[in-house]
Structure formats: C-alpha cells, structure tokens
C-alpha cells in the first residue's frame, strides 16, 4: 500500500531528517457515530519501525491519540545520500503499511 504512505529524507549536515505521512483513520474506539450513537470500533496504527539500510533506528508504539493521517518526523545521524530509509507499520487489525525512500 505504497500510496498510503509519503516519505521524504533530506540531509541536514551529517543528519538525515525523515518525514513520514501515512493515510489512516486512527480511530480511538472511544468516539461515537453522530447518527447511530454507536461507538466507532478502534482502528489505529499501533506499531511502527524505521530502518536505515535495513537496520532498526526507531521502534515505536502508538495509541489512538496520534492524530488522523499520522505524521512522524525523526532524525538519523551518520546517514548519507543514497542510503535507504524504510518504514514498517501495522495497525490493530493487522493491516501492514510499508514505505521506503532514498536519502536525497
């Protein structure tokens, strides 16, 4: 589902600045449908791993408190142009979201 994720990785000195946008509803499970008054089931990305050339650099756990269509920014020291930054994410229903970007 590459179209669900947008990534950018740019060098700032010797640090690569990574920005990730994932399309996701991020439903907490606590919100009620305005019409039916029924709870909308929880549906949110809960685990995210970022890699640099296949090596884990960031291991994250998310709750439903991350805003809809999540944005994640992080920085990695020691990366260089041409390196690959990857994202593997999964939501509470088991749907996977993967992305990769080459450092510019």
């Amino acid at each position: 589902m590459a179209e669900a994720m947008k990534m950018r990785a740019t060098m700032e000195g010797d640090v690569v600045d990574v920005k990730v946008l994932i399309q996701h509803a991020m439903e907490t499970g606590l919100r009620k449908d305005a019409k039916t008054e029924k709870l909308i089931p929880a549906h949110f990305i809960n685990q995210v791993v970022a890699t640099l050339n296949g090596k884990t650099v960031l291991d994250a756990q998310w709750g439903g408190g991350i805003a809809k269509n999540p944005f994640l920014g992080f920085r990695i020291k020691g990366a260089k142009p041409g390196d690959k930054v990857g994202i593997n994410a999964v939501d509470n229903l088991g749907t996977k979201f993967d992305g990769e970007v080459v450092v510019a």
Binding site: T28, A50, V57, A60, G65, I66, P70, G73, F74
Partner: peptide, 25 residues
Amino acid sequence: KNPTPMIASFEFSNGAEPYIATRVK
C-alpha cells in the same frame, strides 16, 4: 487530560537522534 493519556513511545537505536515530531489528539 485525554481519556487515555498515553500517545506513543519511541526507542532510538543505531544513530537515531533523540528527536520526534508528531501530531496528537
């Protein structure tokens, strides 16, 4: 003050800087 206060946790390794940007509810 959120109904469930925890938003997210992040572990840094292999050169990741202790910096995170996100958007919260």
